[in-house]
Amino acid sequence: MRLIVRDDSHSASAYVAKYIIDRITAFAPTPAHPFVLGLPTGSSPIKVYQILVEKYKAGEVAFENVVTFNMDEYIGIPREHPESYHTFMYTHFFSHVNVHPRNIHILNGNAPDLEAECVAYEAAIKARGGIDLFLGGIGPDGHVAFNEPGSSLASRTRVKTLAYDTIIANSRFFGNDIEKVPKMALTVGVQTVLEAREVVIIIAGAHKALALQKCIEEGVNHMWTLSALQMHPHPMIVVDEDATLELKVKTVRYFKSIEAVAAAQGFEQILPSKVRTGPRPISKPLEPAPEVKEEPSILLPKPTTSTLLAAPATEYPVRSHTPELIPDRMGSRIAAR
């Protein structure tokens, strides 16, 4: 887990925006090898989008070879509704940059068959080679996308009923009329997020401090769905000072010191190169690498990343070898590739 603390929400957003730009630049996407970006809606990411748009207009980043997948969308409100996530994305991001509409994927909350829509969405993510970077935000109850407390941490894209709290919170966008608030949404699952090669979460504001504390300092728990991020090989959470209010001073100091030491050593907390550039199609055969016995870095539960994506978790530098203790573990029942 990388936890990056910045003084205020603006510098946290700027950090995230710069990080995404650097990732896209290093990835050097092409039409055949696009960068696949997962995107959220909500108040925390707005500033990130603003900065991305500014940088695009300044010519510092281009999105023509970026494929996007959005996290969620309401069911049953028109796509052009001012509160739809289609509208949010168009207003804050897509209308200002050069993402081609055919590279944009947002769940269709008006699909005749919502189940089929969800299955197709997962299939589309796989068809694009998996998500390279999933940007996310969280709710005050620690939910990521619409995976509200109690959501299965193995969940995939599906129809979700909104919690009563969320409906009340959202009613401010619908003329304070609870009747007008959509009661259901389509959302990617926790597992869908965890399968991304990298997950970056932005959290700002004191009202999210408790959620951050639960997700960082406590164990994996379906009541705080973001805590599942602890199982991901490459998560990063970027927060402002206000969001750290519930954390132990020790925790904050610890993560700050890691960042400071890393910077002093002349490197950012960067990803292994394979994750940075994605599964690039090999143009000429490379020297056959010496046979190495693959040992997973994480044993239980085994992230499905390792079986489903082209850059599986087993390819990360293996640091610790824990002997296999359980002869028949659940992970082995998952069909291998």
């Binding site: 052009e80 168009y90 207003t91 897509f94 509409p101």
Partner: peptide, 12 residues
């Protein structure tokens, strides 16, 4: 209606 054209017709 730029948003509608953008999403429905995939047109730029």
């Amino acid at each position: 209606k730029s948003q509608e054209v953008f999403y429905s017709h995939n047109s730029i």
